[in-house]
Design a protein around this nucleic acid. Structure first.
Lengths: 237, 237
DNA sequence: ATGTAAAGTCAACGGTGTTCAGATATTGTT
DNA sequence: AACAATATCTGAACACCGTTGACTTTACAT
């Protein structure tokens, strides 16, 4: 009686296959968080899983393929985190919703630094993130809840006019995201995005020195003030 | 008569050594920009330089050591670019000075994407950036001109009060940077830093889709509006 | 029970970083 | 000019890597 890991499917073969795939991914993530991108190797995984290196090629076409699978899972994971954090806030507290999503974003990054780097800084030797397919759609999922919140803010007339000009092709954007924002709204949204992502990017890569910076407090202060600057209501100080 | 590359020093040995070191670095950078971090290999460099792989160990202790040297050079290079861009503006045009530095920062990143990734996203297999030594001091150099500009803005009373609280240990900061900013000023400076770095980080890693975003225009609009929000004067629109 | 297809093994190829003994070339001194 | 010292380079070797192909074993369906 094998331990049920991700036992989906009917036949015994399918169950074993799904379990082994899950185990391979788990070992890969463990090695990634333990020793960085260089520390994850097919042979190492095979050794840990108790199988010959060549056997893994029955589950993933290549090491890059395995990384892609890891990336898709991670994108969906952080997207779930952001989504549920936003959903946990009252529907009308738009500022709180956005802040909750952003906070969940940072929290996930701090909890899974190597995976976060994998998602946004392509740190894998020779790996190029696919520009289409489920990896892209999963990547977009992360920002949909926050964009939707901002969109609602725009529709309620809460948010200030963005700085300037039509630097964004809104129809192309809509094609990908399925959200109907004007170019100006997109510009402001992008500004918000670059700000909190920029902070997390610096923090994750060790460029915000904890010796002289209280990162969590500074992140909260900066992002919350930006949210207020956009015009979304936010409680307390 | 060998081609003079970086011929410094008096004796023939020293000149040859300096030249070869420069050549090794040049080949490494070329391979880095051509094929990414995975494309740079000691054996490949040795092949191109026309020397046995083992010979390189007379110049660098390891591949990591070579990367560290590349990183130090690159930090100094981007610091030079930012410094001269700031210095090229009129001393009193503080907003223009800051904007020029930030623009130079982005321009250098776009011109040397692989090196920029090397600096800020440690994408080298197993490489961990040293937390002390010349790599750190070179890294700090990058932001000194921009911080100094903001500091002058504070001293002239131009800039608005930062959002809030003492999230930063200013004395520790002064110890490293030699600049005397209050915690509140540092908080606002960090906000500016995270914003433009965040934009460049997204752009360099391919997350700002040129299909629907005019990155240069959006960058200018967002950053310039932030500079104005801080209180620094800036010409035209 | 048997044929078929999936899954796993083994060995090999070409690549990598790194080490070390030995050969070679340059230097400073006699 | 010859020699000893020393810096430098080479060649072979080790251990690891991703990937492939031929072969064997296992599980399923009829």
């Amino acid at each position: 009686m094998p331990t049920p890991l991700a036992s989906k499917g009917t036949t015994r073969r399918e169950r074993l296959r799904a379990d082994l795939i899950a185990q391979i991914k788990a070992v890969a993530v463990a090695q990634l968080e333990a020793a960085g991108p260089a520390g994850v190797s097919l042979r190492g995984i095979a050794r840990e899983v108790g199988v010959s290196p060549a056997a893994l090629y029955g589950y993933f076409d290549s090491l890059d393929d395995l990384f892609t699978a890891l990336i898709v899972d991670a994108f969906n994971d952080i997207a779930d985190a952001v989504e549920s954090a936003v959903a946990a806030q009252p529907p009308d507290a738009l500022g709180e919703r956005l802040w909750a999503g952003i906070r969940a974003y940072r929290a996930w990054a701090l909890a899974n630094p190597s995976l976060f780097r994998l998602l946004y800084f392509s740190p894998v030797p020779g790996y190029e993130p696919p520009d289409e397919g489920e990896a892209l759609t999963a990547a977009l999922r992360v920002f949909v809840p926050m964009l939707a919140t901002m969109l609602e803010g725009y529709e309620r007339g809460l948010m200030k006019p963005p700085p300037s000009g039509p630097h964004i092709d809104a129809s192309k954007f809509r094609e990908y995201f399925g959200l109907d924002l004007t170019p100006d709204q997109l510009a402001l949204s992008t500004k918000c995005w670059t700000e909190f992502h920029g902070f997390v990017a610096l923090e994750i890569n060790g460029h915000i020195d904890p010796h002289w910076v209280d990162a969590a407090a500074l992140f909260a202060a900066n992002v919350r003030s930006s949210i207020r600057e956009m015009g979304l209501p936010l409680d307390d100080g």
